[in-house]
Amino acid sequence: MEYVSPEGLRLDGRRPMEMRQIRAEIGAVSKADGSAVFEMGNTKVIAAVYGPREVQNRSQQLSDKALVRCEYNMANFSTGDRMRKPKGDRRSTEISLVIRQTLEECILTHLMPRSQIDIYVQVLQADGGTRSACINAATLALADAGIPMRDLVTSCSAGYLNSTPLLDLNYVEDSAGGPDVTVGILPKLDKVTLLQMDSKLPIDILENVIQLATEGCKAIANYIREILLENTKELEYRRGS
């Protein structure tokens, strides 16, 4: 199948190095301490953060740092076919773990010993790249909740189809069965916190693909920073100062 036409356009009209349209909104769940909606094209994710708060299960309490918990799930209506998704299936357990590990790396947990931070992410609409969208939404929500972090974490995926590296795969490209590299970085510190790949890639091409995904992460980081700034300004305005 032709995923990139000889004219250099992908199936949805993007060029190989282009991302889908991204949109973010802070404060979608007023009950939560911090929350955000993040969209990458038709992928739409909502994240809510509770905490730092008292540890619910005492036995899990850590005396030197905060306990970070993450729960990922997909809404039944997020894909075309309305399948009942059992909670805690392998895929969502894995993604929960990935998100938790990625974020734990940048939260300054040692500042909040004996407390717990809960991150809930739910996919409202899935069109490829949910993993990245979840991480981006969660970063925003954490920032909104005012949880101390080393840096923002942003994530983006890239693939390799028709001998072309492609940025930000959508569902159709994702299901082509080609390699799908998800990268998460700390943009200011210029560090990689997440690197995952499905399928196989020759090593020299992998470098290009990772590079491309990193560029994507940086672009997302800039956008997220803008959103945060805007949000802060708004808060400032509301306070009337």
Binding site: G13, N42, G80
Partner: peptide
């Protein structure tokens, strides 16, 4: 099934 695809102009 209903399919929704993005289409960038």
């Amino acid at each position: 099934m209903k399919q929704v695809r993005e289409h960038y102009l």
